[in-house]
Simulated assay, not measured.
Amino acid sequence: MKILFPKFDKIGMPLLSVAVSALFVLEAKRQLRKRTRPKLERLVRNGSVAAVAMPALRLLLVPGMYAAARYAEKNKLGLLSQRHTPQWLRYMAGFLLLDYSNYLWHVLLHKSSLLWRFHNVHHIDLDLDLSTAWRFHIGENVASVPYRGGAVFLLGVPAPLVLVYELLFEGCTAFHHSNMRLPYNLEQKLSNIMVTPRMHGIHHSIVGEETNSNFSIIFSWWDRLHRTFRLNIPQDDIVIGVPSYRDPKEQAPLRLLLMPFEQQRPWKLPNGTVPERHERPHQEWLLP
């Protein structure tokens, strides 16, 4: 299985690093939501979790998806690998379908009690910013390999597209997890096409109905299609995290790595109440 991808590693990753560095500066200068925990504390903790999990992405996921695409292409397997499919259509439809498959994966992470054990590590962060974008348990990253590799195989997307999509996937994940305040009018227009920081901030709310919305990764269309689209929550009203995990001491890296293997708590605050919010009309209207 091919592991080295020169253009991906020598061109794509440096460009992604530049974009991430710019986001890191911008979210510090234009803060969207007020922090509840010290920035350095979270950088160390989230960075520690990411350091364990990230190698699985580069050494398993990317090579696995690429190999699946090459095999489907070579054997003319998969939806888009048929002989008479134009190349431009394979790339365009392939990009859209890859993104749709990741919307479905994200929904599955929330609906499956087994997968949620691992995805919960991402959600119990008490703040939401750029560092949260890579705070994923290694178990979740490993579990994504057969799903995302299988999606690539069934779709029959071109192998080079897999690498391009993965770079944009990571870049957009960094963007919408960032705590960067975009001009409201600009973000209102952007959210019609792609996932933005305000839109994804709602997904990290302690209110269950809000957590189970806005699952898209790049394009926001999939949430509109499945009626999981929600914008009408003011950012100042959002409390980030999971209600039953509010103790900052539980954010220690070792504790986070062991958390999926412990009994999961019900969706309640420490006082036993379930967070709720009065439903506002017009879910598709972005509020500041």
Rank of each mutant, 00 (worst) to 15 (best):
S205H: 03
V157R: 02
T36N: 11
L40Y: 04
V18R: 02
G139H: 13
V52Q: 01
P260L: 15
T273S: 06
L256I: 00
F24W: 14
M199C: 05
R45I: 02
L104F: 12
D125C: 15
T211H: 11
G272P: 05
K268V: 01
S131K: 07
N214Y: 03
L130I: 07
V274T: 13
N192Y: 13
E276R: 14
L4N: 00
Q188G: 03
M180L: 14
I138F: 15
L254N: 06
L79M: 12
R227L: 09
V107G: 01
R35W: 09
H200K: 06
Q87M: 07
V49G: 10
M1W: 03
A68P: 05
L16E: 04
N120D: 12
V121H: 13
D247Y: 06
K39Y: 13
M13Q: 08
Q31V: 14
K2R: 02
P6S: 09
A28E: 10
R42S: 02
R117P: 04
R246H: 06
S178A: 15
A51R: 07
A133S: 15
S220M: 05
A22L: 14
W88L: 09
G171R: 07
I138R: 09
N212R: 11
L182E: 11
T196F: 11
A252L: 13
V20D: 05
L60S: 09
K39T: 07
W134E: 09
L57M: 07
W221I: 03
L182W: 15
H122K: 12
T196R: 10
K29A: 12
H122D: 13
L15Q: 04
V207P: 01
E41Y: 00
F8T: 03
V142I: 15
G208F: 00
G156Q: 11
A174S: 13
I202S: 03
T85L: 13
E41H: 02
H278V: 09
R37K: 04
K76V: 00
F261I: 12
N141E: 12
W116G: 14
Y147A: 09
T196V: 11
H203S: 03
L97C: 10
